[in-house]
Every structure is written in structure tokens, then in C-alpha cells.
Design a binder for these strands. Structure first.
Lengths: 189, 189
DNA sequence: TTACAAAACTAACACTTGTTAGTTTTGTTT
DNA sequence: AAACAAAACTAACAAGTGTTAGTTTTGTAA
């Protein structure tokens, strides 16, 4: 059973508030007020506050997992794979700026689905690590500690949700290109 | 009047808990329990929960401000300035892994000192932006959107506190060197 | 040993939290 | 107009929140 329209509205409102103050600091009364109803009315549509967080984070995490699966099985070079992952992150982040905040900052407040989330994240990181290591073996990527490359890329990609909405008239395609250049080719002449 | 030893212990304990769950999800009873005392006893040493957060964030932010002031007035190339900033972030982050979490994730819960914090952060970002722009004009840095460079560097540097403690026997000097290479020269051969 | 301050304690406060139960309103279909 | 479900409401709960007041314990200096 997929969520009703009203439930989706509640989840979206919750995500917006979670981005501003974090899951723990947002009360059910805050969410209700933003929707111009009373807190108790929310429970005609949802089961718990936790369910809101869970839906926001898990569906996003699964989007990333799906994207990674496509990239890693593609028959392209390691560098091309990394470029595709940059595009994946820009795409998902620009379409889910609120939800990405929860994914990054509130995952530790997951209860029932914490283990599942952690597995998805670990798998994602290991796939990315493999791509980088293969790239080094292939001589596509410089011979530097792969952990540093992994860390640096992932840090930037995970912060996109903060920056994208700050730039009003952002050309997503141009931005993706620029970011790929900076991340892969560096900034030095 | 500088904080007493016991007050420093409370702040440190608080910072550790804030890193795990965030400011809002940590109660005074949590902090007290971690110190094997009762919550009310904390108030013999501190004035409020807010004071804990404020001390953690503001003193760190001022460290960065001090570091930036030294870098920007140094008579070195733009690239050298960026290298110094990488070293500054690695140094502060590795010595304050708990506190850095609050700086990154809980600044919005500051009350009296929110405006001051925002000013420090804005000034820091503008100084970094200036260094990057000068580097582009100097032909030291490739001609790409400086906002993308700023964003990419800062995202990575701000996430150091997550990664550094995960690597147990990390050679800080080597790591600083590797990170500078990856951020400035890129990863492509 | 007495005196005193530092630092712990117990008890309680006013308020906020997520959530439930039961009821009324709203809107649509017969 | 009658019937029914969807979605709002009021009222309340048990538990947890930061903090205060007043008291007792602990450790140290006279």
C-alpha cells in the first residue's frame, strides 16, 4: 500500500522542518502547525513520528543504492563511473534537498530500520571504494591513499544538499560538469 | 574568569554526547549519568545546557578565525594559503573531533550567540573565497566557478571530524599531504 | 577538630513530549 | 436527504524536559 496524498504532504512538511532543526528538535505540534491542523490529526494519516523519519531516509537511501547498481555494472572506465556518480548525487540532492538533510544528520535516530540503513550505506561506500581502487590499478587514477579519495569525494557529494538551494539560478548541468572537473582534475594549473 | 576543571569535564562530556545524538536529543540527565552524578549537580558548575553548546561552538569557531587571520596575511601564494588552510582544518579537527560535530550540526540551536557565530562563519567563507578568486586571477588556479571550488573544499574540510577518528593509526602529517594533493591537484593522471 | 567552601544529593516545579480515545465536521456517493 | 468514510477536532495521558531550592556530604586549610 503506497502512501496517500495527505500522508505525502505530511512527510514533505516534516522533511522541511527536520532540515531546519533536526529530527529531535521538531515536535509533532510543529509539523501540525505548519500544516494548519492539530497534532492529533496527523495520526489519522501516519503511525508515528519515527515512521516519518524512516520513510524519508530509507526511500532516499534506496535511490542511491539503485543508482550505484546501475553505475557499477556499466561497461565504462573508472573515471566515467565516478562522473556518473557525481551526476547521480547532484540529481538526487537537487530533487530532495530537505530529505538529504535527514539522511545526513538524523540517521542515528532511526529505530527499527537503523541496521538496514547502515547496511545500505556500508554497501554504497564499499562499491565506491572498489571503483576507486580499480581506477588506481588501471592507472586511471593517481597512486594516492584510496581512503583519502573516497573521503574527499563523499564529503563533497554528501554536502550538495546544503549548497544547491543556496544558488538560486543554478544551471544543474553546468554545475555537474564543473564539480566533476574540480573533483577529478583538481584545481591547480 | 576561565572555566574550572570540573566545568571543562562537563563540557567535554557534553560534546561527546552531542556528537552521538545531537544537542536536542541529549538531556542533562544523559550528561549527568555519563559523569556518574545527578543532573542537578551539574548546575553547581554551569549555568545552562545552552551554555555548554555555546562554549563548544564559539571557542572552536574562534580558533578557525584566528587561523584564517594568520593565513590570509601571510606573504605566500594562493595555493600555499590553501595548503595552510587544509593543515589548519586537519589540526583543529583531529584535536576536537567531538566539538566539531556540534559546530557542524548544532549551530542552529545557539540562542544568544547565534548571530556572532554566523558572522564568524560568513567572514571565514568570504576570506576563503577571496583567496580562491585571487588564485584564479594569478593563474595559479584553473578558471572554474570559484563557488564550486569553495564548496568542494569546505565540504571536505568540514567533514574531517567524521573520518579522522575512524582511521586508528592515522599519520596526521601524511594525511595532510595526501589531502592537499587530492584537493588541489585532483586525482586524474 | 573545627570551619568552610566545593560539590554532591533529594525533591520538586512548570512545561513539553508523542500518542490515544472519543467526538464532530467535511465532503462525496447513493 | 441519507449514509458513510475521510479527516479534522477536543481532551487527556504518562513520561520526560531543563532547572531551582534547600540539604547533606566531601575534602582541605586553619
Amino acid at each position: 500500500m503506497k502512501p496517500s496524498q495527505r500522508k505525502i504532504e505530511i512527510i514533505t512538511t516534516a522533511a522541511q522542518l527536520f532540515k531546519e532543526k533536526g529530527y529531535s528538535a521538531v515536535t509533532m505540534r510543529d509539523i501540525a502547525k505548519a500544516m494548519h491542523i492539530k497534532a492529533a490529526s496527523l495520526y489519522n494519516h501516519i503511525n508515528s513520528k519515527q515512521e516519518l523519519l524512516s520513510h524519508i531516509i530509507i526511500s532516499l537511501a534506496e535511490d542511491f543504492t539503485t543508482g550505484m547498481k546501475e553505475v557499477k555494472t556499466a561497461e565504462i572506465s573508472s573515471i566515467e563511473k565516478l562522473k556518473k556518480l557525481v551526476a547521480l548525487h547532484v540529481s538526487i540532492s537537487s530533487n530532495n534537498t530537505y530529505e538529504m538533510a535527514s539522511l545526513n544528520n538524523d540517521w542515528m535516530h532511526l529505530e527499527a530500520e537503523l541496521d538496514y540503513y547502515l547496511k545500505l550505506r556500508k554497501d554504497y561506500e564499499e562499491n565506491l571504494r572498489k571503483i576507486i581502487k580499480t581506477g588506481i590499478q588501471n592507472n586511471e587514477i593517481i597512486d594516492v591513499n584510496p581512503e583519502v579519495v573516497l573521503f574527499s569525494m563523499l564529503s563533497t557529494l554528501r554536502s550538495l544538499y546544503i549548497w544547491i538551494p543556496k544558488k538560486e539560478d543554478l544551471d544543474i548541468q553546468q554545475f555537474t560538469q564543473d564539480l566533476s572537473n574540480v573533483l577529478l582534475k583538481g584545481i591547480t594549473k
